[in-house]
Design a protein around this nucleic acid. Sequence first.
RNA 1: GCCCGCUUGGCGGAAUUGGUAGACGCAAGGGACUUAAAAUCCCUCGCCCUUACGGGCGUGCCGGUUCGAUCCCGGCAGCGGGCACCA
Length: 872
Amino acid sequence: MSRYNVRENEAKWQSAWADRNSFAVSADPARPKYFVLEMFPYPSGRIHMGHVRNYTIGDVIARYKRAKGFNVLHPMGWDAFGLPAENAALERKVHPGKWTYENIATMRGQLQSMGLAIDWNREIATCRPEYYRHEQKMFLDFLKAGLAYRKESWVNWDPVDNTVLANEQVVDGRGWRTGALVEKRKLSQWFLKITHFADDLLSALATLDRWPEKVRIMQENWIGKSTGLRFRFQLTAPAGVTPNVFPGEPEVEVFTTRPDTLFGASFVGISPNHPIALALAEKNPAVAEFIADCNRVGTSEEAIETAEKKGFDTGITAEHPFVPGWNLPVYIANFVLMEYGTGAIFGCPAHDQRDLDFARKYGLKVTPVVVPEGEDPATFDVGTEAYTGPGLLRNSQFLDGMDVEAAKQAAGERIEAMGRGQRTTIFRLRDWGVSRQRYWGCPIPVIHCPSCGLVHVPEDQLPVTLPDDVTFDQPGNPLDRHPTWKHVNCPTCGTAAVRETDTFDTFIESSWYFLRFASPRVEGQAFNREEAAYWLPVDQYIGGIEHAVLHLLYARFWTRALSHVGYTDLKEPFEGLFTQGMVTHATYQDAEGKWLLPSDVDVVDGKSVEREGGGPVTVGPIIKMSKSKKNVVDPAHIIDTYGADAARLFMLSDSPPDRDLEWTEAGIDGAWRFINRLWRLVTEPSVALPPAGTPIPAELSPLATDARRMVHKTVAAIGEDLERFRFNKAVARIRELSNALEKLDAKAGADAQNIQEGDAAVLREGLEVLVRLIGPMMPHLAEELWSVLGHDTLLVDSVWPVADEALATEDTATVAVQVNGKLRATLHLPKDIAKEEAEALALAEPNVQRALEGKPVRKVIVVPNRVINVVV
RNA sequence: GCCCGCUUGGCGGAAUUGGUAGACGCAAGGGACUUAAAAUCCCUCGCCCUUACGGGCGUGCCGGUUCGAUCCCGGCAGCGGGCACCA
């Protein structure tokens, strides 16, 4: 019995594809295109199992679509800027660029060992000037179009990495990489106007019908559209507080989604960072202290957990817009955010939980104005829980008796008629802060001139490249410290000026790389317009759910911004999106609680022990593979041992691709076993196979008939499975088919001297089909078997099999016979047999008769080819 | 707190979306081959009763609709994910 020689064959076929440039493509308007893209990797050092899963899924789709006749673009690149390179520079005294390029070389080799059908001629690395020069140009174009601007603003400052973080990079008040408590700092920053497209980014989600619902909902919530009313309260400052506390008119503008509850108002709350609060702070140390207090706890974890409402009564009063003389106290309130709405609210405690907490604490009036159905308007009251549901208005003058929606409209109209405000829409989405105080990123192409101010780097001076001679021995930005780099003459007036030393957020590179793949070698422009028009949008994008908001939203924005400044007509970059699950593994700890690698653990007599020394091991929960918990398995080692095909097969088997996949030794063993089984099935048939295309006689043995039907059924089913990302089911069907062919082969072997005409021909056809079906999943094995079957062309150049529907359908149906819904017998009936006949046969079954217990049959339900249910 | 999703054998998961629950695989047990092991092959494998034929129960829990519910509806519980003082 032979074993499949993995190393030899995988290397052989990888070279064969490379030598023939099998996966190189070019735009060809005469052919239908298909762009398969997996989220490109960050070159961290070595590939991990998450990569293997991601690229296996993409490769199956790419190879399948290719076999189906599409012109398939399947490229690979490197998301090569980022902090880890600088951390490596710090720890190992190696230049971030050198570290990055070495990692790319390693990981390229590892990816190539997976046998991916990638057009490597299109490989890009975003840290190369020939890539990032284009995004410098794009940025300048955005700047001219008003889509980029500079603003002094509070930023999230990560004290460990010494850098600014985007809102999206702050998780629970901590830096997403370092986990350090984020501080607030005020810096001059570059922003991209993603809010300009807020409405479109939101409404176009509805067109993304090949995106997971979950991702669309997450983006929807992130964009956070609210419709409501924006209006002004007239303010009065009490004696002792001079009127000039007001930066402008003595008024404050608030935003509300509940104008219907205006008559339930009991206070006005302004943010600690509201201009009025800041103006008060200058006169009043107590206010200044209160504000400082609020800012200190700002985003910290405790603040979010305790969420205590705190307020400072300013003494200022606000006059109710509908009731002259009704004055509400104005508080500085810690729960009012300056960044959302107008930074000021009116509080209606009865119908908003935060307002209620606040009112109870400060003894403010609570007046319910919306009465739920079934409650008595005269007595309805709220306790500690605000009522936010529907109902009818009361205590609200002209709104009395209306429902909530009508009252919202009426109140809004009244305010508008009074000229005090207007109904409006606001978004939670904030503009994207893109400045980073880091070295290993794309330089921002502007110059600060003392006389001209902000000057764009002229296009003929692009790219602004990073200097190589930098040091990482002190915290802060090496670009800023560099002795000469930032000092330049102003391109406009020639006087001494300073370069911007911030670099771009690395999410910018990944916001347009898919466009660069259309024409990765074109110079002088980011991409060739025609080629981009042919290849884009990406037909199928595949990656982790962790990018549901950040990367995917930025890429959608960037694409719109590029269209806005005329680069392309593309609107949505990714037509189909698939988010794969994580690769998980059990965790192991030794007696001291130290994490152990799976490869350091052995199982002896059902117990886990340390491989070295045999110490006891605690087996922990099955969680995402991570270096910190050491529950990682190195793909390179697996590919070395079992081959890429086995690793790929395991990635596709058992777990649906959108769910988590537990990596196990037994699982990869199982995959390896199956590969050898396929190998033996094709290379060691027990009868001589007739040549390919040998006609199959009409009369076949029952076993051959069944096998042949299975072949055609499987072709149809697997096509469907692959289209719908049901790889686990596709693998199950491959196994069923190979089981059926093994059975046929064994039969042919047993009867070798008296072989039924056609059995061998059916086996031949089945093997031909089987090998083509496994092509996308196990490409090396498939290629080898294709050659064993006598083909002198490459499998990757052959077409996908076509199912013969007539051969796939059965002429009998297995019908369940139930009595009162309980299964009592199964019948094999000719397909589409007359109902009466089926009924009679069912009732004739002894077991059915027994179950009837002589009772009269009330009715019989016959579902053709499925079920007969006898009801008594 | 709000918004999503999930819950099926010892395990991963199937079930043509209202029609035979448990495909396919993993693990386990038994057997064959072998001096032995590995590899390979065969058999068993939801739970309970029964020598067998067969019967009862069973898709997180409670209820409903239906001839028939893993699937639809109402309620509850548990697990996971996202957002989080968003007015």
